[in-house]
Structures are given as structure tokens and as C-alpha cells.
Simulated assay, not measured.
Amino acid sequence: MTRISGRIVTPGGVISGHLDISGTTIAAITPDAAAPGNDTIPANHTALGNDTADVIVPGFVDLHCHGGGGHTFTTGDPEAARGAAAFHLSHGTTTMLASLVSSPFELMRSATLAYRPLVDEGVLAGIHFEGPYLSTVRCGAQNPAFLRNPVLAEITEVIKIGEGAVRMMTVAPELNGALEAISLLRDAGVIAAVGHTDASYEQTHAGVAAGASVATHLFNGMRPVHHREPGPVIGLLSSAATVELIADNIHLHPGMLAYAAGSAGPDRSILVTDAMDATGMPDGEYELGGQAVVVADRVARLAQGGSIAGSTLTMDVAFRNAVAAGLPLTAAAAMSSATPARLLGLADRGALAPGLRADIVVLDADLNLKRVIRAGV
């Protein structure tokens, strides 16, 4: 039996006490006799006030990550994928999707076959194709050479050969054939996401009605909000879709992060990294989807055009930034663990409760990473 003590962030609140692990699961959570009730860390990083106890949260679940630690998911190389997953595990991500960027169908197919064994092993929770069925107007750092309207035969094939490994695909709903593609994904049990889109408010709602349930990095790669044409941002926030938020204080101002999370609520908001291979690496020159990227002072941008090209964020920093933006610990934990786990249909993880898998992140009082436990290890 392993015991961890501190401020335990559960779905029902923050408990001062200890958590017991037996094998791969959480055996018990026992509160101390006297437990303070503050579950919000103020933005000045004094953490729990005068309390220096560790903060214990569920293992992070990242639905949108392209790589890290010098390793990428975008080339379909299984050893690189292992390296990227291991790097993010060391930062608290105990469950993750491998996100690819827009690419030729041959790469989509080969990557699906290459990553399927890693999904079977549990190294990855699945594959996320961010494209290539995206808007050229809002392509951001997606390679425009590979963008195209949805091809149902391509989507059908990768789902079939993936045998459950393909878990998510981002589509711009205004493209020809997009609504049919979204419905196909929904019917196959694959999460359909709206992103890199120039859709109107009405087109966005049509995408959600067709089966889209996630907004890929809300605000980024989308038509900006306008009071006479709300566009996809307001369309998604006003729908039942769950919204991804990149909490690196670069893609989103902390105030906008707090606003979006407050508007959608923690049950419809998720923190993601959108990290690339440069995460955890020195500034310099990198590559993403066949395009040169320059990283300077944590910010990744295309060498040509200057568009932001993913991030250098890890989930432990995203969690800390979300709390610094004013979100309660319970909300940040839901957004980084419970809500994305529920989207993936993983009922055995995503929260700290007896009987669930022991995926646990231990943070110090200032929310700096101290320890990561995955399935009790």
C-alpha cells in the first residue's frame, strides 16, 4: 500500500488528508480531522495561503499534442511517438492522444498502422488527426499544400485499419462534404472536432448538429468574433460542444481563458497543450508538417509568415496557468483530467476517487510538479 498526503483535489472539493494506492487503483481517500475549505489558489501564486501541503490532482489527459522532448507524433514514427509520450508523462500527462497535422493520405494511413500497437499497449490513448480537411483561410501553421475537402473513403479507411485507434478528427464544417464526414465520424464512435475554420455561426451550429462535439483550440485558427457575425467561437460556446483551451498565456490571454472556461463551464472546457517536438528543448529551428518553425522565448512560429505553430507547453504548466487565471482547483482538475477522460469514454480514470485507476500528479504548494504516478507506478 502506498500513501500520499496533502490537499487532494476530488470532484466534490479539496480534501486535506491522505490517499492510499493498492496495486493499480486508488484504494481510499481519508480526510484529516481538521480540513480547511479553500479550493481556490489566488493569482499571486501564494498557493494555499499559509498551507505548504502538496496539492494532489488526477493525472492529466491531453487530447491535442503533436510531440515533445525533441520527439514528434507528426511523422508516424512509433519510436518518436514513444519518446514524446514518455516526455509528457514526466510532466504529468498519464493519458494522451497523438495528434498529427495535415498530411497526404499515405502518411495518415501509415501512421495509423504504426501507432495502433502503441494504443493496444496503452502508451497512447489514440490518434487525433488535426486535418487535412481544414480551411485554407484559417490554416494557421497547417501546411496549405495538404489541405483538401473531406474524402469519405479516406476517413472510412483510417477508421477501419485503426481498429479503434483513431479517436478524434478535426474538420472545418463549411467545406464541401464536411457535414457528411462529421456524421460518419460520429457514427463510427470517433470524436468529430470543429477547427481551423472560417465557418459562419450558422455553419458552426450545423456542424454540431451533424455530430461535432469538440472545438479544436477555441479562438485559434478560427474567424474572429464580430457582433454582427458571431462566427465559430460564439457558435461553439453557445452549443453543446466541449472547447479546447491552450493555457500557455500565448495562444490565449489569461483573461480570455478564464472567460471561455467560465462561459462553457468545467464540464465543457478542456486544457490542451498543442505541444510540438520543441517542447522542453532549446530555442532554435524545428519542423512541423513539412514547414520550418522557429522557436524563440518559448514561442513557436512558422519561419515563413510568422503564424504561431503549436506550443512548447506541458500540462503541468497549463494547470498552473489556469489556476493563476483565477480558476478553482476543482475546475482546473476537471478541465485537465475528468472532462477529456469522459470525452474519450475512459470511465476508469480522470478523477481521484476510490476504485479508479491510480493516475496521480503531486504538486507542491505553488503547483510545481513533484511526482507522477500512472496506474500505481
Score class of each variant (00 low, 15 high):
His217Tyr: 09
Asn143Ala: 12
His217Phe: 07
Glu202Thr: 07
Gly131Gln: 00
Pro232Trp: 02
Leu152Met: 13
Val194Glu: 02
Ala193Lys: 05
Arg167Ser: 01
Ser183Thr: 09
Gly235Tyr: 03
Pro232Ser: 09
Glu202Gly: 00
Ala240Gly: 15
Ser200Asn: 03
Glu202Met: 02
Gln203Arg: 05
Asn149Arg: 10
Ala199Ile: 08
Tyr133His: 13
Arg186Ile: 00
Asp187Gly: 11
Arg228Thr: 15
Leu236Asn: 06
Val137Glu: 14
Val243Pro: 01
Leu185Pro: 01
Leu218His: 03
Phe146Leu: 10
Ile191Lys: 03
Leu147Asp: 06
Leu218Thr: 05
Thr204Met: 06
Gly207Cys: 06
Ser135Glu: 07
Ala210Glu: 06
Leu184Thr: 04
Pro173Gly: 01
Leu152Pro: 06
His227Phe: 14
His226Ile: 12
Pro224His: 11
Pro224Val: 09
Gln142His: 11
Ile182Pro: 01
Glu244Ala: 11
Glu202Trp: 00
His227Gly: 13
Thr242Val: 14
Met169Ser: 03
Gly211His: 05
Ile159Gln: 07
Lys160Thr: 13
Tyr201Leu: 11
Thr170His: 04
Gly207Ala: 06
Thr170Ile: 02
Arg223Asp: 05
Val214Trp: 03
Met169Trp: 02
Arg228Pro: 14
Thr136Leu: 14
Leu245Ala: 10
Ile234Arg: 10
Val137Met: 12
Pro230Tyr: 12
Lys160Phe: 04
Asn143Ile: 10
Leu236Glu: 10
Ile155Glu: 08
Ile155Asp: 09
Gly162Ile: 07
Gln142Gly: 02
Asp198Thr: 11
Arg167Cys: 07
Asn176Met: 10
Arg228Lys: 15
Ala181His: 05
Asp187Ser: 13
Gln203Met: 13
Ala181Ile: 09
Pro232Lys: 03
Gly177Asp: 05
Ala188Gly: 09
Leu245Pro: 05
Ser183Asn: 13
Leu218Phe: 03
Ala141Trp: 08
Ile246Val: 14
Glu244Met: 12
Val194Ser: 01
Pro224Met: 12
Ala210Ser: 11
Ala145Glu: 14
Phe219Leu: 14
Thr204Gln: 07
Arg138Phe: 13
Gly207His: 07
Ile234Leu: 15
Leu245Thr: 05
Arg186Tyr: 00
Leu175Met: 12
Leu152Trp: 06
Ala209Thr: 08
Tyr133Gln: 09
